[in-house]
């Protein structure tokens, strides 16, 4: 499943960068993630609960930030395991300042599914990707106001 999207966020790059590296914030805006606990450095334990249509699953795994280029980009690696299948995602996040000092946040990556999720999901996967993307940015905008 390909995950791509971009969105203009009404805050300068520096703020976006700081927020996105804040596990509490990241947990709030990432669809499904209910908790991120720092394990070491940029490695977090992640608990997720995904409720999309017929699928309702509890996931557990890790999230890790790598390849950080300050105020520019990083790669988010997510591994989530559940009884109905596992998800591994590698997503590159890029932040670019706009002319009016806002931020264009774009991401590009793939999420690989295994198990039952992979076997039964084809019909709806593109919808899942679109939905997760939309949720991520709308959560982001909402939460941005609180920080």
């Amino acid at each position: 499943m390909e995950l791509t999207g971009s969105h203009i966020l009404h805050a300068p790059v520096q703020k976006i960068w700081d927020l996105i590296l804040n596990p509490e914030f990241l947990a709030k805006v990432t669809p499904g993630i209910s908790r991120l606990e720092q394990e070491s450095g940029d490695l977090y334990k992640a608990i997720a609960e995904i409720k999309i249509g017929p699928v309702h699953g509890k996931f557990e795994g890790s999230a890790e930030l790598t390849d950080k280029v300050e105020h520019e980009s990083f790669v988010l690696k997510v591994t989530q395991n559940s009884k109905i299948g596992n998800v591994e995602a590698d997503i590159k996040m890029v932040m670019k300042p706009t002319e009016n000092n806002e931020t264009e946040l774009s991401f590009d990556g793939v999420a690989n599914m295994s198990g039952l999720l992979a076997r039964t999901g084809n019909r709806v996967m593109s919808g899942v990707a679109n939905t997760l993307t939309k949720q991520f940015f709308s959560n982001f905008e909402k939460e941005l106001l609180n920080y």
Partner: peptide
């Protein structure tokens, strides 16, 4: 049959 690049059988039910 369609396998994805990770070897997942994505046509694994009568729905697909």
């Amino acid at each position: 049959v369609i396998y994805d690049e990770n070897g997942q059988l994505t046509t694994g039910t009568f729905m697909d």
